[in-house]
Design a protein around this nucleic acid. Structure first.
Length: 562
RNA sequence: GUCCCCGUAGCUCAAUGGAUAGAGCGGUAGCCUCCUAAGCUACUGAUAUGGGUUCGAUUCCCAUCGGGGACACCA
């Protein structure tokens, strides 16, 4: 809707030789217009023409070319806004598309970009907690949205299954086993694990569970099978993580393991690229990436003096690997605790992608961490210390729909306090139920109407009934507000895609639900004499479609009854 | 010390530089002979502080105060 108006207004100013950036937005509620634009004042500023004059010219142009089809009324308000009342034709046009396309609405052109969204990627060292949940839902829903808007999207989880943390994890589990059954572990491994846990170890309850499983699976643990033990521990934890994600209705297309990157030729290729382009140097027995020459404040190690690659090196390989798979829009979703790492990776990727002549967009989306409040106290979460409330526990307490919605309504940039007690108490009064209830009311009406007329007829051939809509002249305020809101659905999706955040859609839905509940109170579809008012029925059907489609993007259920 | 995010109603959060700052929860008072009252209506109530830029600032800039986070040959 906005897009169409924007296009016409742009055409108008181009016609007069002006070229400016301006907005088209919904005006404040006290202004009786569908859309408003700051175009007059913006042009006035740049070209020294009075806003009134700009308005006059634009109005004439719009009315001459698009009256009836698009504009009903254009008015000026100071200091330089143009208020737009749209013709009902354009609203009906959109409404018809909703009814015809149904689940497929809004149909869009296929986009060229091949998108890879990498998110969660929590280290396989323990269960997911609520912070991972936020990341999971942000990525999952962003993927759904971009898919809906015509992009080819893959959702990927990157598993860091090597490095020191895996050693510490393995040692922690083995050490726990030693405490219970000393003789199961060979001396060499015993000494190794005791040495590692002296410094740091994982302390959660789940470590004991893993130790028990280890005993069942291996019987005896020695140097010869320690790598299998590591793999078993990682696989077991990843199995749990995948289960949690599934319960949370988060779906990944692919899991990629860090170790698998080292089994390919990528490492040699990257090394060659780096040396060829003089991006690295050897110093103190380690290999350094010369990032200080880029945007970093100092150089960074990629191969330690022990010969072990660092996480940074793995990440360079991983991103190279993404591009090798022909993705050209990479979106990473990270916790804000990684913000210092953003520029480093971006600049490294840029030089490497440039050197192989690939044009790739890399967006790194940071979300603020979630603080869990329990008993009025902030709970510091630490996987290593075993202090956390798992995602599973939260879901069990308040449910998937409520948790997802709670995590999505807030802008990723906002700190988030998840008060577990409050969430439990409020789960029955959650806004998500307000939205779902509006949907069930749509279903209820359609069900009742079904007793009087054949509804599936209308659903399969809505175009036959459009005349009834167009010839219905006495729409009430509630109906007009509802129609307008439905027609702005697509704009909301575009807004979310532009901002890479779905909270706008959540707010839109709360708004739509309120508008629909009001409509429900004021505008009966079935009159007492069992007469069905068709235009209203079509509105209800369109509303139901919008609720369904958007809840589907959010991964939240749309129940028929509650 | 350097860097990043945030500070809006009693609480949890909205508001791509726009017009009289919006919701939900809570509180107060009403509304079911009628498509589910998990609803509707009315009232209640907020931009941390001080400057600046702008026709216009919750939004941008500077300072102050407060909260969270990051600054490894960890991942």
């Amino acid at each position: 809707m906005k897009e169409k108006v924007l296009k016409v207004l742009n055409e108008a100013i181009t016609n007069f030789g002006w070229n400016v950036q301006f907005d088209v937005n919904e005006p404040p509620s006290e202004i009786k217009a569908d859309l408003a634009s700051n175009l007059p004042i913006v042009v006035s500023k740049k070209y020294g023409v009075s806003p009134e004059e700009v308005f006059g010219k634009v109005k004439d142009y719009c009315f001459y070319n698009f009256r009836d089809y698009m504009f009903k009324e254009l008015t000026f308000s100071s200091p330089g806004f143009i208020n737009i009342v749209l013709s009902k034709v354009i609203f009906y046009e959109e409404l018809k598309q909703i009814l015809i396309q149904q689940k497929k609405y809004p149909k869009v052109d296929t986009k060229d970009e091949k998108v890879l969204i990498e998110f969660v990627s929590a280290n396989p060292t323990g269960p997911l907690h609520i912070g991972h949940g936020r990341c999971a839902v942000l990525g999952d829903v962003l993927g759904n949205l971009l898919r809906k808007l015509g992009y080819n999207v893959q959702k990927e989880y990157y598993v860091n299954d090597r490095g020191r943390q895996i050693d510490v994890l393995t040692a922690s589990v083995v050490y726990t086993l030693i405490e219970q059954k000393y003789e199961i572990v060979d001396e060499k491994i015993r000494l190794w694990s005791e040495d590692v846990v002296k410094e740091t170890k994982y302390k959660g309850e789940y470590i004991k569970g893993l130790a028990a499983k280890l005993q069942d699976k291996f019987g005896k643990i020695s140097e010869s099978n320690i790598n299998d033990v590591k793999k078993f521990i990682v696989d077991t934890i990843m199995g749990e993580i995948e289960l949690s994600l599934k319960k949370f209705n988060v779906n990944f297309d692919n899991y990629i393991y860090e170790t698998s990157l080292y089994e390919t030729k990528l490492v040699d290729e990257i090394n060659q690229l780096m040396y060829q382009n003089k991006l690295v140097e050897t110093k103190d027995g380690a290999v350094w990436f010369k990032s200080a020459e880029l945007t970093d404040d100092k150089d960074r190690v990629i191969i330690k003096s022990t010969g072990e690659p660092t996480y940074f090196f793995s990440d360079i390989i991983y991103h190279y690997n993404k591009v090798q798979r022909n993705f050209n829009w990479l979106i990473n979703i990270w916790g804000t605790d990684h913000h210092g790492y953003v520029e480093r990776l971006k600049s490294a990727c840029k030089v490497i992608f440039d050197s192989i002549g690939k044009n790739v967009k890399l967006d790194i989306l940071l979300y603020q961490l979630v603080s869990l409040i329990k008993g009025g106290q902030r709970v510091a979460m630490s996987t290593r210390e075993g202090k956390f409330v798992t995602l599973d526990e939260v879901i069990a307490e308040v449910g998937t729909d409520v948790t997802r919605f709670f995590l999505l309504t807030k802008s990723p940039n906002a700190h988030l306090d998840f008060d577990l007690d409050l969430a439990k108490e409020h789960s029955l009064k959650n806004p998500v139920y307000y939205i779902q209830y509006a949907h069930t009311r749509c279903c209820g009406i359609i069900r009742e109407v079904g007793d009087i007329i054949n509804v599936s007829d209308i659903e399969s051939h809505p175009e036959i009934y459009f005349d009834l809509l167009e010839n219905y002249d006495n729409f009430t305020d509630e109906e007009i507000v509802l129609i307008r809101k439905l027609c702005f659905y697509k704009d909301t999706l575009e807004l979310c895609a532009g901002a890479l955040s779905l909270h706008h859609l959540c707010n839109y839905l709360i708004d739509l639900a309120r508008i629909f509940h009001k409509f429900y109170e004021r505008c009966r579809v079935i009159e007492k004499s069992n007469v069905v008012i068709y235009p209203r029925l079509l509105l209800v059907m369109a509303t139901k479609i919008i609720f369904n489609n958007s809840l589907n993007i959010l991964g939240i259920s749309a129940p028929e009854r509650m």
